[in-house]
Design a protein around this nucleic acid. Structure first.
Lengths: 200, 200
DNA sequence: GGGAATCTTGCCCGCCAGGCAAGTTTGCTC
DNA sequence: GAGCAAACTTGCCTGGCGGGCAAGATTCCC
């Protein structure tokens, strides 16, 4: 990926990814609390101080994967036809994304490590925070697809509920991997589909 | 409130509340980053160490109000007729709660302080985390009101989307207090109302 | 090749979470 | 009331963290 950019950019992306991978691996091995930032930095062959240049906390490093995926989701959303209903566009983008993840092939290792982190309530909170950081951005994109009088509120609601749905679906799938992920996601999105505006 | 309990319990509740108030006041006055835990403890006439006995971080103290309100919401939900549709029960409980808040009369001071904290993205993340900590509990309650084959997933989705909606509605109202809060909440809940299960 | 921009690292400071133990307050029983 | 146990507060202390700063290394671009 990112083949186009210069050496500097590629190196940065590489260390950022290395830090993320190290964080995830170590957290899965030893439990998230037993891992120090220093250990993560070592695992990526980088000084502790450099870690701080990339991430502002252990947890941010841990969920950098989610962050990247959400950014990708935004791109996929932008690629949807602009006259499509916003929720449908969101759903398509999300399903497209999970398909991509399967193509990557790395899903299995990822799933395994994520399963070991299941049930640490502190981590769930940080994950929710990571998702929440995206709400404004996503809401901005959605607002352009709405014509409502109060699009601002509607866009934020839709962004928040959609992200919550994706987050829960992923979590649920991690805990019940017997069902394929797309099926879980599809069901979750169906459950959360907003009613076509009952004009109360 | 809590008149029934013994002295010990009442004192604990009082210091916990005092710490929360101090945190909110100081954060609103000086900005959340410029406030140290020590200052909050001082503001509540308590040692720094005691702060840690009540809250595990500044942010937890800051959002203790939200936490309390969410607990109250759960009680109100339990008080709804058990044959009511889950989403309607949730909505009623939420509207009931905001009505209670207005009755309290302290909403104005609260609003003022919260407005000053608007736009600190780090805080929004922590708020999302506080709400996320409630998802499991709420989902548990909702699961009892569902008969679905996959109630587990449905309950979690509904809990997550509902909490996201309440959170966004509150935030939106803080930023646009010209509209009354119940109106904002009602609109938000209407936008997020799930469709009656399109059997895809 | 050479200067400018950028990145890495080590050093450092103030802050923070939480274990431990001594001292204090509350609850309970007689 | 007296006295004891449970629970709470506090100070002390440790390991870890976030981020400012400046010196040195690397990359970029002319």
């Amino acid at each position: 990926m990112d083949e186009g950019a210069g050496l500097r950019e590629r190196k940065k992306a590489a260390t950022r990814l290395a830090l993320h991978e190290a964080a995830l691996r170590l957290a899965a091995e030893q439990g998230p609390d037993r891992v120090t930032v220093e250990a993560i930095a070592d695992g990526a062959n980088v000084s502790r101080r450099t870690f701080s240049n990339y991430f502002s906390s252990k947890e941010e490093a841990l969920f950098y994967g989610d962050t990247r995926r959400l950014r990708r989701l935004l791109d996929l959303l932008r690629a949807q036809p602009p006259d499509e209903s916003p929720w449908v566009a969101l759903s398509r983008a999300a399903l497209h994304l999970t398909a991509e993840m399967y193509d990557d092939g790395e899903v299995l290792a990822w799933l395994e490590r994520r399963r070991r982190l299941r049930g640490h309530p502190g981590l769930l909170a940080h994950q929710a925070a990571a998702y929440a950081a995206f709400e404004r951005e996503l809401a901005g994109e959605l607002a352009q697809r709405l014509t409502d009088p109060d699009r601002a509120l509607r866009a934020r609601i839709m962004a928040a509920t959609f992200l919550a749905t994706v987050r829960v679906a992923t979590q649920h799938w991690i805990e019940h991997p017997d069902t394929p992920m797309v099926a879980t996601l599809r069901a979750a999105l169906a459950h959360a589909t907003p009613a076509p505006e009952a004009t109360s």
